[in-house]
């Protein structure tokens, strides 16, 4: 099974029905993507396929229809994505475990809706749980990222 992750082509010897989440984490050792529930309830496993946010626990390896981007491939360390910069500026992370998924979801949100309202943010981001309840700072960081991206 061949799969492109963060611009690199990998060959994986795993059953087709292995969820992309576990193919990435255990097959390729790409651990920025997290397991939280396995049933599309938490968003910790969010990655992009061809730029679109998906729950990697719900995509079988064999059905992966395009190039996969995980948080590790979102930006270069010296040029962080505006969403990551905003996340740092607002000091969003607490335990941090949900944040890869939150950031990948937020990037997708802003690519579809560059000027989201609080309601837009609530609607899209409510699929991503945060047990540390960093929600207010996530909301604020998304607004900041939106304006950074508009100005860029």
């Amino acid at each position: 099974m061949d799969i492109t992750v963060n611009g690199t082509l990998h060959s994986l010897d795993l059953p087709d029905d292995t969820p992309l989440l576990w193919a990435l984490r255990d097959g390729l050792g790409i651990t920025g993507v997290k397991y939280g529930c396995g049933i599309a309830q938490c968003g910790a496993c969010t990655v992009h396929i061809d730029g679109q946010a998906v729950r990697s626990c719900q995509v079988a390896l064999g059905d992966t229809w395009g190039d996969v981007t995980t948080i590790e491939g979102l930006s270069a360390p010296d040029a962080l994505h505006p969403v990551q910069q905003a996340w740092i500026a607002h000091q969003v992370a607490q335990c941090g475990y949900c944040q890869s998924g939150q950031i990948m979801q937020a990037v997708d949100l802003l690519s579809l809706n560059p000027t989201p309202t609080d309601e837009d943010i609530d609607q899209v981001m409510s699929g991503n749980l945060c047990r540390c309840a960093t929600y207010p700072r996530i909301r604020a960081a998304i607004h900041t990222a939106a304006s950074m991206m508009r100005e860029a």
């Binding site: 397991y35 360390p77 996340w87 000091q91 941090g96 475990y97």
Partner: peptide, 21 residues
């Protein structure tokens, strides 16, 4: 203060027990 772990936790590089390989 800026949290010392905030960059790692915003870039997927923070290592939890589940991430030990």
């Amino acid at each position: 203060q800026d949290r010392l772990d905030v960059v790692a936790k915003s870039t997927g590089r923070a290592i939890y027990a589940s991430d030990i390989r």
